[in-house]
Structures are given as C-alpha cells and as structure tokens.
Design a protein around this nucleic acid. Structure first.
Lengths: 145, 145
DNA sequence: CGTTAACGGTTGATTTTGTAACTAACAACA
DNA sequence: TGTTGTTAGTTACAAAATCAACCGTTAACG
C-alpha cells in the first residue's frame, strides 16, 4: 500500500461532507419532526412553497433536485395534514399548482425562524472568513453535477 | 418576519452541506456500486479495515459513528461476498475480529485509489485556500455532536 | 386530423434504513 | 456462587427511499 500517503477517510471530501451534513442536520430535524411530524422531504417542499409561493411539483423538483416520487409523496402527506392545497392548472391539466394553507404558512414561518437562528448558531462556531469561504466552496461543489 | 433578510434554503448550512455531499458522492458511488455491488455502509467498513487492519465491529462503530445495526448488516454482506472473514475473539466471545480477504484487499486498494484521485479532482475545482478552509470547517462541523 | 412521442405526476414492488427488542457472553459485587 | 447489570452483536418489524412501470394529457409532425 502507499506508505507515506496519509489519504484516509477523514481526508475524503464526500465522506467529510457527509459527516458534517448529517451532524448539522440532526438538531433541526428534531424540530420539524417533533413539532410537525414532518420528514426531510416535507419540510423541503414546505420551504420552497414558503419562499417562492405557488409552484408545481415539477418546479420544486427543478429547484431542489429531489426526485419526483419523493416530491409526490411529500405533497400527499402535506396535503393530508392540511399544510397545502392543490389547484389544478386548467391550461395544462397534467400539472397542479401547490399553495400553502394558513396552517402551512404558520409552520413555514416557525421553521424558517428556527432554521435561521440555527444557521447563525452553526456559523458562530466558525470565523467569519471560514464561514464565507465555506459557503462559497459548498455552492461550487453542489453545482458540480 | 424579517423583510430584507434574504435567508433562504441556499443559505441554510445543513441544506447546503447536504446538496454538496450528495452531489460530490454521486460519481464515487457509481464506482463502488457498479464495480463491486457495494452500498455506502459497505465501502465504509471496507475502508476502515483496509486502513486500520483487523478491527471489531464495535471499533468500526467508534471510528465511523455508524450505528451498530448498519455495521452488522454491512459485515454480513461483505462476508457473503467474500470481502472479509470473521475471527471470533477467544478471550471475549461476544466480539469477533474482522479481516479483509485477498479479494477484499484488492477491492480496497482499487477503491482507495479511485477515492484519492476523485478527491484530488474535487479539490481542483477549489482554490488552495478554499480547500484548506473547507476541510477545516467541515471537521469542526462534523465534530459538533 | 391521427398517430407517436414526451411530459407531469402517481403507484407498486423491492431495497435500505431506523428503532427496539432480543441473545449470548462477560463483569461486579453482595 | 448467584444475582444483577452491561456489553457486542443480531434480528424483527416499521418507516422510508429507490426504481420501473404506469395513467392521463399535451406536443410534434406526418
């Protein structure tokens, strides 16, 4: 094996990214799970609708890169729990527009606030320079596909 | 809510980390899946054994922070496919030492090389400063739990 | 028009993960 | 010793993700 070469798991960016992603998601996951019984796919859909307003499932897919079956099922559950409503597009009846209900907007505002504060807390463990460069680097890597 | 505040998903570190992690894992996942039919948990176990030699499942758990059921199942599949063998510890018969077979070592060497080169390719999309700070920041975040 | 292809979205079967309860082995200490 | 607690690892069952096939609608084009 390569003798002097110290390449190990802790130096492998996909592994490192994964560990950081999992660790940093945990505390927030607890909030949307315990407060609203949501899954990761569900709060993501909720966030997209909260941030950008009425969207079709397809548009959410384009923005989030989630697979359409995930989105379909997330929308179903959010509808069942009255966080959103569907509004068929009369011009193209294959698709439907999704809107948050009042309850959905409340949940969104609540979780948005939690996320914002949590993000700030995470950023606080870094220096401002680290934070700036980390975000830039992550955006580059995320856009790589 | 804060009007001017442009906090959105793309600024939320857990989300950003997740996107970067998923995107950057894809190409490597394709290799261990297509070449060896492995899952993420399995190449991780393989890597630990390749890097550190004979270990018990518990030791792998301590190093990787994977849950013990994941490790148990990964070990089962790796054993079935003859990538490792189990060697019961006679001094403490609750645990067994795991060793890579010749085939396991070959797969490890192959994947280690792929990972190393892939990591270098990822790092190449970043400036040296970005890379250094990214790795440091990720380690901080990963150790947060 | 009519046929074929593409699209948005859903469903069902299979795989993978998560959670808890379990087994067997060991340790602690009365 | 024997009783109680702990540990390493497995298993069973539920929850979730993945993948391919599917349905109804719209587009493309002969």
């Amino acid at each position: 094996m390569s003798e002097k070469d110290a390449f190990d798991l802790q130096n492998f960016l996909p592994y490192l990214l994964n560990q950081a992603a999992e660790e940093s998601s945990l505390a927030f996951q607890k909030v949307y799970r315990d407060r609203y019984g949501m899954l990761r796919t569900e709060w993501r859909v909720l966030f997209h609708l909260g941030l950008y307003g009425r969207l079709t499932a397809k548009e959410i897919g384009a923005r989030s890169k989630m697979h359409k079956t995930k989105i379909s099922r997330a929308v179903q559950r959010l509808e069942e729990r009255r966080f959103l409503t569907r509004d068929p597009d009369e011009a193209d009846r294959r698709q439907e527009y999704l809107d948050l209900t009042a309850q959905g907007r409340m949940a969104y505002r609540d979780l948005h606030g939690v996320a914002h504060r949590y993000d700030a807390a995470l950023a606080d463990t870094l220096t401002p320079e680290e934070e700036r460069i980390l975000r830039a680097a992550l955006r580059k890597l995320a856009r790589m596909g």
